[in-house]
Amino acid sequence: MEFLLAITIGVLYAAAFYLLLRRGVVRIILGIALLSQAVNLLIFTAGGLREGGVPFIAEGQTALAATSADPLPQALILTAIVISFGVLAFTLAMVHRADQATGTDDVDDLKGTDQT
């Protein structure tokens, strides 16, 4: 299972970086979205895969059952998803404005601020 996930993460990273290197701004945004998914899977895999129950303490117990999954990577991923949702929504709005202001979505044409 780790192997399969590792391959998936690799493919996601490769696709994300390919998109990040394109010239269209929208493709770059898609690349960022893919990148955050790749990172989420990475956290999930690095946190240790375990076949087991949901990490809830059962009724009448005081501790987690030994077989249950580690809840912390899930909490991290959840937080990361929330943040990337907010960031992505903002980025899309910003790119829309940038497109209106500059009239282009080609990063090669966004050179105005790099020239002396």
Partner: peptide, 16 residues
Amino acid sequence: LISSSFFLAACGILYG
């Protein structure tokens, strides 16, 4: 945003 994703990946690996 790219730097944030590096940061996040680093946190995940460190936790693992």
